[in-house]
Design a protein around this nucleic acid. Sequence first.
DNA 1: CGAACGCTTGAGTGGAGTCAAGTAGAGTGG
DNA 2: CCACTCTACTTGACTCCACTCAAGCGTTCG
Lengths: 236, 236
Amino acid sequence: MIFDDFLRHRRKEQILPEDRAALEASVGEVRSVPARMTLVRKDERVHFSTYLIEGLICRYMDDREGLRQLVAVHVPGDFVDLHAYPLKHLDHDVATLTACKIATVPHRNLDIVMRERPELAKFLWFSTLLDAAMHREWIFRLGRLNAMARVGHFFCEIEAKLRAVGLSDGASFELAMTQNDLGEACGITPVHMNRMLRMLKEQGLLQMRAGQVQLLDRPALARLSEFDPSYLFIDE
Amino acid sequence: MIFDDFLRHRRKEQILPEDRAALEASVGEVRSVPARMTLVRKDERVHFSTYLIEGLICRYMDDREGLRQLVAVHVPGDFVDLHAYPLKHLDHDVATLTACKIATVPHRNLDIVMRERPELAKFLWFSTLLDAAMHREWIFRLGRLNAMARVGHFFCEIEAKLRAVGLSDGASFELAMTQNDLGEACGITPVHMNRMLRMLKEQGLLQMRAGQVQLLDRPALARLSEFDPSYLFIDE
DNA sequence: CGAACGCTTGAGTGGAGTCAAGTAGAGTGG
DNA sequence: CCACTCTACTTGACTCCACTCAAGCGTTCG
């Protein structure tokens, strides 16, 4: 089923089977998208939302000179731009980082959910609030942590998210992001990102090679970067 | 009416009169709270949400050494921690900056709204997504702007929000925040905040004295800080 | 093979932080 | 009415983390 990973391990109360069926029924189409492709552009009026089945998607804002700030990185199981449903248009761009498999959900189908399935509606709302909680953590990261801690914090977060949907074993996982991408997420230059990765490796905390990440000492990394996963609302 | 400023000037479609009445009816109590008082603490289970009628409220996260990062500043008309309704507990603290008048709304009353008033539910959802949009803009601000632009951007944002509810005439407004508070919002030290305010004054952009802010040249300030208010979804 | 892209490293610079020493003003109490 | 206190604000000197500029390396792919 398409939404098997939606809110997986995210909360004790489960989505009711009939609500889950309604969600599956709301899908418009499923398709594959190549890497580095823009899905939604800022200010563009949108009539459907995108659910990520496979791959990595990011959301970002560019400054005047085109320097990019990522505001979110999405993994399978994320309803990437569900917030476009109440908002109608977005304040940022959405693009794939890797080749992706996505499902698109027309907003008119979500209208039906809102009217007929208040419980499911609350889960959808909840999922957009998880994104907001991550936004807040990113604000904290950028506002209060130094470069090394920012990088460590980012890796801790993405690992926890991937683990919740079975894409990390707690120590190593695939992450097809360049050092430039990582810099855009952490608010540091690619050159400095490179230096931070070297230092993290030298300290035996984390290693990244060819899109493969190994957390060599996750507890130490979490300590260094003041990472506390409670904001992710993951069970267990 | 209590919710007169709720989503004021925020969208063309208005909340239906009967939905508005239902919202008014959902209020538990209205009360006054002194300045610098914690309203909700991180991880605390909450059963009601807070709507701000008068005053300033902030949300924040502290790092290990107690250094604070604000993640939001709320003005009258904001449903401060509505997100606590689906989330059940918060990942951050909520506190007053000034003396405030607030309305508390029990979550059991919101359950009724969800079941019986899907249109209103969507407005409530929308309002939490506005906060998320502001979070994103704060990420951009911290990740991509230098200290002076961050400060300018913050003032542009708060002015636009205050103007939407009639608390700014576009040039001057009251803002009872200390330079320390402002630094915690912009991710810079209070000492540097002081220097930035001096520079902004020297450049004829903005003046702040005794909690009174004057935007001397709003267009120039917006240009300097790459401020584009579209993310606030304000009409007109 | 050459081009393109991503990664790596060094040298020098500068913006923001830190530390320290003040001043200004509001509120309090003798 | 004037010490006294407390908080917020102000300014200078020095430091350092991260940026910039620059050059070079390694892979992949056409």
